[in-house]
């Protein structure tokens, strides 16, 4: 009973922090937030200011987040009206996805309010997703990317990393399997010039172009160099190792045998 009560108390604190983040993102001043909370501005800042709020929202509890939730998830990948709150284990992935969405939003010159209006979702939902504080199911993420006139495939890799904690791809599937990861990470990095990216990664410019266009597949070290040069963690974006005995591919026969 005590455990339940303390858990409810912790969740309430997290909820207040989330609401404050949204209010702040919507342009509310600390004075207004403090007034609504019945406290002083200094106290409100101390309790729910940027770093503190992020810490509270990222806090891993026994019930929050897929990594620490062994029973069942509350949200499925294809659904509406549900956001997955970010916990420590998925913070980096959610931040990367949020950065990518922010870049697209900036490139198109559209405000979060316009975006939410077009997507017909609540304003806080878009704020939380773009700020990397929550991950939306693929349905909403897809709609947002589509509204921002980009190819959802480029961002899907980042979404999988944020939602499932890993990216599932068959590296034996052919050329260009990893190129979407490069393009997504580049968008998340604010779309830097390819020449700058290749220089930072120590690659020849033409090699970097071939990798981004999917004309060649990199080995793991080149993949890591390129992803790290875009400010992302290569470990989280590299597809999981598939044991040798699982990678045997069936003959891709031309006939269907029917």
């Amino acid at each position: 009973m005590f455990e339940l009560a303390f858990q409810a108390q912790r969740e309430a604190v997290r909820l207040v922090a989330a609401v404050t983040v949204v209010a702040s993102a919507e342009g509310k001043e600390w004075r207004e937030i403090a007034e609504a909370a019945g406290t002083t501005e200094a106290s409100a800042r101390a309790h729910w200011g940027g770093a503190k709020a992020a810490e509270l929202l990222a806090e891993t509890s026994s019930t929050a987040g897929r990594r620490t939730q062994p029973t069942t998830r509350m949200a499925m990948a294809f659904t509406d009206g549900v956001l997955l709150p970010v916990v420590l284990a998925m913070q980096q992935g959610a931040q990367l996805l949020g950065n990518a969405l922010k870049t697209l939003q900036r490139n198109l010159g559209v405000s979060p309010e316009e975006l939410t209006q077009r997507a017909e979702v609540p304003v806080p939902a878009v704020h939380l997703v773009v700020d990397g504080q929550a991950v939306a199911p693929w349905t909403l993420t897809y709609v947002l990317i589509d509204l921002m006139e980009d190819d959802p495939e480029e961002i899907k890799w980042l979404w999988e990393r944020a939602w499932y904690g890993r990216c599932h791809r068959d590296l034996a599937a052919g050329l260009g399997t990893l190129s979407a990861a490069f393009r997504g990470a580049r968008i998340a990095a604010g779309t830097p010039e390819l020449s700058a990216v290749s220089r930072r990664a120590g690659l020849a410019p033409e090699e970097a172009v071939a990798l981004f266009e999917g004309r060649t597949n990199p080995d793991r070290s080149v993949f890591s160099l390129l992803i790290a040069s875009l400010g992302a963690d290569p470990e989280g974006l590299w597809p999981p190792q598939v044991p040798q005995h699982m990678t045997m591919r069936e003959p891709q026969s031309g006939g269907d045998g029917t």
Binding site: F78, T139, Y142, V143, D146, P152, H168
Partner: peptide, 16 residues
């Protein structure tokens, strides 16, 4: 859009 999102989400895994 929902249909396209669903299709893109599951197509490759269905194929495998």
């Amino acid at each position: 859009l929902e249909y396209f999102a669903f299709r893109q989400l599951h197509h490759d895994a269905y194929l495998d």
